[in-house]
């Protein structure tokens, strides 16, 4: 475990009292954000996000499998995070510890609960075959604020994901193909999907060839995280700030300015006023980050 020198802790809080941070940023200010998409060839979608020195890679894999019995016509998504020892001297190999599980679940909720992926459009044959979407988050370099980096990487990766129907079509029988064609007709009406996901083979007209097409998505909420050090609320904490933080609050807001997910972490507490302050900062920063995200996917 990293031991924080008391001097560093005191210096960060002393600076905060003067309205300053160790890297010269304002309390609400993020470090530079870079998003690079399509970085993994083998993945159906991928993105590498850098926030300052923090780097997170997210890859999306898809497969065909059975739906849950209670939701026979919806696709299935799952999210996992690996805190690989590559990213920090304090990360250990082995099964995911609670930090990695919390991160994966918060990213998962941000996507699932606001129905960013239109899972109901990922049904092939009701009750039998649906698309499975696996979101895998790989931490590459840990310098604080993994929540925002991971959720942004997941969104950028999902927004550039192509449903790999061309690879899977051979696994579908006649019934599945007919059912899937009907589903495709629905998906094709989704705004934003402008390339034809299927076409017919003119030569013998018996075989349907199908192109990969973008994952059906809606405008996602953006997560912004602040930490509390003494009585100060700082956004996008770097590692030195994060390890002395008392409390952490993540707020995901959508493009209409509504709140879509929240998560409070660590053993400190927030007052109602502080929570309002975080929401305000999350809205302001969320707008800026949304622009960067849209730019990265060529929108």
């Amino acid at each position: 475990m990293t031991i924080v020198p008391a001097i560093k802790r005191d210096y960060i809080t002393k600076l905060a009292e003067q309205g300053k941070r160790i890297d010269g940023r304002g309390f609400d200010q993020y470090r530079p954000i870079e998003i690079e998409t399509k970085v993994v060839n083998k993945a159906e979608g991928s993105a590498r996000v850098k926030i300052g020195n923090t780097q997170v890679l997210c890859g999306i894999k898809m497969d065909i499998g059975e739906p849950f019995p209670d939701t026979p016509t919806t696709g299935v998504m799952s999210t996992a995070a690996e805190f690989v020892p590559l990213a920090s001297p304090d990360f250990e190999s082995g099964p995911p510890r609670e930090d990695a599980i919390e991160l994966a679940r918060v990213v998962d909720r941000g996507v699932r609960e606001s129905q960013v992926i239109q899972l109901e459009k990922l049904c092939i044959t009701p009750g039998e075959k649906v698309w499975l979407v696996f979101i895998d988050i790989h931490i590459l370099d840990y310098d604080g604020n993994l929540f925002d980096a991971a959720s942004l990487a997941a969104l950028a990766a999902l927004l550039t994901t192509k449903v790999p129907i061309s690879r899977f079509i051979k696994n579908l029988d006649e019934k599945d193909r007919a059912s899937w064609q009907q589903q495709l007709l629905d998906i094709y009406t989704i705004p934003g999907i402008d390339e034809a996901p299927f076409g017919s083979d003119d030569t013998n007209n018996t075989q349907v060839t199908i192109n990969d097409f973008p994952l059906p998505m809606i405008e996602p909420p953006i997560s912004c995280t602040a930490v509390k050090i003494n009585d100060f609320v700082l956004f996008d904490s770097c590692f030195d700030e994060e390890i002395i933080a008392d409390a952490r609050l993540t707020v995901a807001t959508d493009h209409k300015g509504d709140i879509r997910a929240m998560q409070k972490g660590l053993s400190g507490s927030f007052s109602r006023e502080e929570i309002q302050k975080v929401i305000k900062g999350a809205l302001d920063n969320g707008q800026e980050i949304r622009k960067i995200l849209n730019q990265s996917i060529g929108k």
């Binding site: 996992a80 690996e82 020892p85 190999s93 895998d136």
Partner: peptide, 18 residues
């Protein structure tokens, strides 16, 4: 040395971990 394959590094998703 610890060699690890990311879940998304291969055609069929690999279960995370060794």
């Amino acid at each position: 040395a610890r060699y690890n394959m990311a879940a998304f590094s291969v055609e069929d998703r690999k279960r995370p971990g060794p």
